[in-house]
């Protein structure tokens, strides 16, 4: 019995890993297409039909480039940093419920790697660990620009972790559970959390942008001031991993946004359709992924619309606007939960 569970989980982990990589790869392609569309250009269209093989070409290019490790760099940490960054980006995918359970024979196959009671806190821990890859990479490069980029990014991440956590606290107060599956099941009838926690959602969204280091919060790698930020000294596939992990971050964050605030794999009326369990499972996966793709598109949309903040503006927004707002949100939610 135990071996079947281990087999289940292994299949699921490998599947999620591959899907995350595939989505991240095509997100790079999507990013360039969306940018082109917003700027009235054509975008990549040479490799394959509609340029669909562009991510493959990019990947091959990354692998083929010369790999340079600076002489003054700390080699061990320099090599391990991109790996740490990638791992912390992928870890949060473990607790996301990806869909309704499949039924094979009389056994249920849950599309969830770890059903933790503390699910939401696990995400929060992984977010908190996200800055290590950047900091270690920036320091090990032994370069001014890298160090400055690393310092900026980690101070930004620490600042935005607080309102991120507090907006989640309000949601947890409202939901009464930390378990992501239960949070999704609560939103079964189209009563998505975003309608009850609009302020919390906006704070969470802004913080997620900052945590992913996406524009308008791409302080860690502001090209015009810091060359490439923390990955200035990186080349070849190590640089590729850093860039790639950003897209994986984006994918997982979109999944968490959809799960927490937009009903996860449910859409209003999914139960009234009376589908067979396996078909319902497939439909629920498609629903979740369409929500995820919408959020990935939102990330790109914002990036190509808004200019970058100045660093003091980022700090100001985090500490003087978002934290007081999220505290207010907690108070209001607590009052609502207590009195109604």
């Amino acid at each position: 019995m135990d071996y079947i569970v281990i087999l289940d989980k292994t299949i699921l982990i490998v599947a999620i890993f591959i899907v995350s990589l595939a989505v991240a790869a095509y997100a790079t392609f999507g990013e360039r297409k969306v940018a082109a569309w917003l700027q009235d250009r054509v975008g990549p269209n040479r490799a394959g039909p509609f340029g669909l093989l562009q991510p493959v070409a990019d990947g091959v290019k990354m692998f083929m480039k010369e790999e340079i490790i600076p002489n003054a760099a700390n080699k061990k940490l320099f090599i391990i940093a991109p790996a740490i960054f990638m791992v912390t980006a992928l870890m949060s995918s473990a607790i996301i419920p990806w869909g309704k359970p499949f039924e094979i024979g009389d056994r249920q196959f849950h599309l969830l790697v770890a059903d933790l009671n503390i699910g939401m806190l696990f995400v929060f821990a992984m977010v908190a660990l996200g800055s290590y890859g950047i900091m270690i990479g920036g320091w090990a490069s032994n370069s001014k620009f890298s160090l400055m980029g690393a310092l900026r990014s980690s101070s930004q991440m620490i600042s935005y972790e607080l309102p991120l956590g507090m907006s989640i606290v309000a949601l947890i107060l409202f939901a009464g559970t930390l378990n992501l599956t239960e949070i999704v099941e609560m939103q079964k009838y189209g009563n998505w959390n975003v309608f009850y926690q609009p302020l919390g959602f906006i704070i969470f969204l802004v913080c997620v942008f900052a945590e992913c280091g996406r524009a308008p919060f791409d302080m860690p790698e502001s090209e015009s001031e810091l060359v490439g930020g923390f990955h200035t000294e990186y080349s070849s596939m190590k640089l590729g991993l850093f860039l790639f992990a950003e897209y994986i971050h984006m994918f997982i964050s979109s999944a968490i946004l959809a799960t927490l605030f937009f009903g996860g794999y449910h859409f209003p009326g999914i139960d009234s359709l009376d589908l067979a369990p396996n078909i319902a499972a497939l439909v629920s996966i498609v629903v979740l992924f369409s929500k995820i793709f919408f959020f990935i598109f939102l990330f790109m949309w914002v990036r190509w619309t808004l200019p970058r903040f100045r660093f003091d503006q980022v700090m100001n927004l985090g500490w003087n606007v978002l934290i007081p707002l999220s505290l207010l949100n907690i108070l209001a939610t607590a009052a609502y939960v207590t009195f109604f």
């Binding site: 503390i118 806190l121 696990f122 929060f124 821990a125 908190a128 660990l129 800055s131 290590y132 900091m135 270690i136 320091w139 310092l151 980690s154 101070s155 620490i158 972790e161």
Partner: peptide, 17 residues
Amino acid sequence: IVHIIVYAGAIMVLFLF
């Protein structure tokens, strides 16, 4: 998980700084 968030996630980042 709180141990990881507080010690590994917050305090050690400041140490690294």
